[in-house]
Design a protein around this nucleic acid. Structure first.
Length: 110
DNA sequence: CCCGTGACTCTAC
DNA sequence: CGTAGAGCCACGG
C-alpha cells in the first residue's frame, strides 16, 4: 500500500500550510518527501474530495492560480484566499522568489 | 510498449 | 510579460 501511504503524506503536508499563507505543488511534494513530484500532488488534489483540506493554499511555483481564470474553481480559490486575507491580483499571489544569479556566481572573478 | 493527458517546474530566448 | 522544450510521474487507450 505504498501508494496510499504517499497519498497521506501529501495530504498531511497540505494540512500543514498555515492559515493565510500559500505554498506550491512542488513545495508540498518536497514537504511530503517527494521532491520533483509536483504533478503527483496535483493528481492527489484533483481526486481528494476532502472539504476540510486547504487546497486553495496551493498555487503554481509562480504564485499563479492553477485553474483557468473565470472557471468556477478559480473563483472559489480566489474567494477562499481572500477570506484568509491573502491578496490576489490577476489570479496571482505575490510571493518573493530567490533572485539567485548563478551565472554571475559561476563567472565571479573570485 | 508507445502515446496522450494533466490543479507542475525550470531554463532559454 | 510570452512561447518552447524538456523533465517529471501516474493512468488509461
Amino acid at each position: 500500500m505504498g501508494k496510499n501511504c504517499i497519498n497521506q503524506e501529501i495530504v498531511a503536508a497540505i494540512r500543514r500550510i498555515p492559515y493565510g499563507t500559500v505554498s506550491s505543488y512542488g513545495e508540498v511534494a518536497a514537504m511530503a518527501g517527494l521532491p520533483g513530484r509536483a504533478r503527483l500532488v496535483a493528481k492527489v488534489l484533483s481526486g481528494s474530495g476532502e472539504a476540510a483540506l486547504p487546497w486553495h493554499r496551493v498555487l503554481r511555483s509562480s504564485g499563479q492560480i492553477a485553474f483557468a481564470p473565470g472557471s468556477a474553481q478559480f473563483d472559489e480559490q480566489v474567494r477562499r484566499l481572500q477570506s484568509e486575507g491573502v491578496e490576489v491580483k490577476r489570479g496571482r499571489v505575490k510571493r518573493d522568489r530567490k533572485p539567485l544569479d548563478l551565472d554571475a556566481l559561476l563567472w565571479a572573478p573570485d
